[in-house]
Design a protein around this nucleic acid. Structure first.
Lengths: 192, 192, 192, 192
DNA sequence: TATGAATGAGATTTCATTCAT
DNA sequence: AATGAATGAAATCTCATTCAT
């Protein structure tokens, strides 16, 4: 038969790459960067080990791409409506809940991200992207606290950021036991 | 020279075990459980690889002991004065600062602990000890918030716990840039 | 357009085979038989990896053909004028220079040939053709030395052959530094 | 029992390294750098694959050491008596025969050396050592031809060098058929 | 015929653990 | 008890060859 067109191949590659990325995320999140093996990922993706290397040149590059991709996605989430022009208490609460939802939809990514961030030699790979993301979301809340005439908007935003980090961590560790709704209400009460 | 007594030998053995534990902590914290090698640890401890195995029967048992030991130490810290009978705002702030100091003195341990906690297959090894510790310190703050007539002492303590987790995380990631003092003040303002 | 005739197709196929052979020669010469990959050769030839296999059934067969082809070409060179009826000193020198020119025009082939010849398991593939070629050119010089009344035409031809092998080797290793002309003059002085 | 002394270990290591080097030489000579595998070498040396890496950090480093070691040995051969103060025809012949003997005792090394020299990317690894060796032995014969009042000692030495290279090559390819003695006599007749 | 994705065997390398001394 | 050499399973990665299109 005739060979696939350039377009079909491009399509195929893109789909496969995405598929591998998803499998890799699952495995890395479960076992950590060093604990995960290419074999596990290939099996999870349902492909031969060797094929991994037609798509990603090494385990290292794979994880880098994974993180870069996830952070880009997260950054674009932060551009969404619920984070625009926060002024009211209600909008604040909504933004918070929206953020947590997003996190809950991507726990695998955030688990991996957190693990890597804790290992200096691995974290350095995506420090820049990571800082950009943090600044973006801190900026949003600093602006909010300024509008609310907080005496120290910077510190208040920082604390909120720390709470979000803590929430992320707690929800990764023991999601079932965590009284998420009560805590959110408490946060809103104290911050909004 | 007379041969060492049984006791002296036992003593020596204990010291050595402790020494290995410290070396292991340093290496595990830097490279993660899977990324660390027995060789690295032996070198860090200044002993031969093979000798490791007369003290700890495997890499796995070594981390387990490490975590168990660290959590026990942390639990005993929580028994110290600054955490007794918190009533005043001042005592609350002191307890908080004391806690953070303890953390800052043992960042390697908490870094490792955090990494492991995020990896379900590894976390299961010390779930019990871990939960006991969390309950202990949550208990202290629940009691505090009850005394302060909080409407929801449980949620407030939980949020405080989350803040402490977030602080721990943020200080592990970027200690230099974190405005710790400002944030503590903000916490005290909002909670005490 | 009318479909190509059987003949045209055959023609095309031959041209393509030749093209692949040239690409393969370049790559094999640069990296050796085991160091070269089918991928490299396909890229050099500007065709898809898979297509290689419709022309040559395996990497092994490809080198074999390559060597066979090159030796045949070399053998036919030896049939050319400059090698007929060597009698005079001048004709001897000319034949030598002609030979070296031929070599210099095909250094890639001779580099590969030399590499393979040194590896017994690979050399065996083309031993016959190789010996035929050597005998052909030795014959020419044995005849020459006989005409010149050498006391040991065989040994003298053999030595000349060895010189040619040495020249080939030296010119492959460090062509720029080699004082080729001075050495040829010296050979002529000593042999012609 | 008590552990081995520093000395015993050093001894053991040295012996093993040498043993591996010999096995590696054999395998590399037979299959070429890329054709040889660590597995083959380990088997030839009678040790486990993994142990190779306690002695040589990579396949690449192993060949490098092999070549460096062999060239050093060859260079020190060139310091021996038969090459001192060549003046007489007899001494010249002796030096030649001595040289060829040395080559014949180390054909594996020279086979490997020749193969590597032909592959530019591999040859670069030991260019310096290689050039030093060539200069050393060329120097000896330039001096000889100067003493013999040759009109062009440099070219004559160069030609002799080329002959030696050619001899080496021919003896590697087909030692059994080569009329070595006749050719040596012919060389002596023409050069001494 | 032509493409390059896909396979799978095997290459290089690593490392927890054992062993001889 | 102490050493580090040795093992062997398994990890990362490569590549000749096949296959679906």
């Amino acid at each position: 038969m005739s060979p696939r067109t350039q377009d079909q191949l491009q399509q195929l590659r893109e789909t496969r790459k995405q598929h591998i990325l998803e499998a890799a995320l699952k495995v890395f999140a479960a076992h950590g960067y060093d604990g995960a093996t290419i074999n596990m990922i290939a099996k999870e993706a349902g492909i031969a080990k060797g094929l991994m290397y037609t798509y990603y040149e090494s385990k290292e590059k794979l994880v880098e791409e994974l993180i870069r991709f996830g952070l880009k996605k997260a950054a674009s989430f932060m551009q969404e409506k619920p984070f625009h022009h926060l002024t009211t208490r209600k909008a604040f609460e909504e933004s918070l809940r929206h953020m947590i939802d997003l996190f809950l939809q991507e726990t695998d990514f955030w688990r991996l991200y957190t693990m890597l961030a804790l290992q200096p030699n691995l974290a350095s790979k995506f420090k820049k992207e990571s800082m950009a993301f943090v600044e973006q979301y801190l900026g949003i809340y600093i602006a909010y606290f300024q509008k609310r005439k907080s005496k120290d908007p910077m510190a208040e935003a920082m604390l909120l950021g720390t709470i979000i980090d803590g929430l992320m961590f707690d929800l990764l560790i023991a999601p079932a036991e965590y009284p998420l709704d009560d805590v959110i209400k408490m946060v809103v009460k104290k911050f909004a």
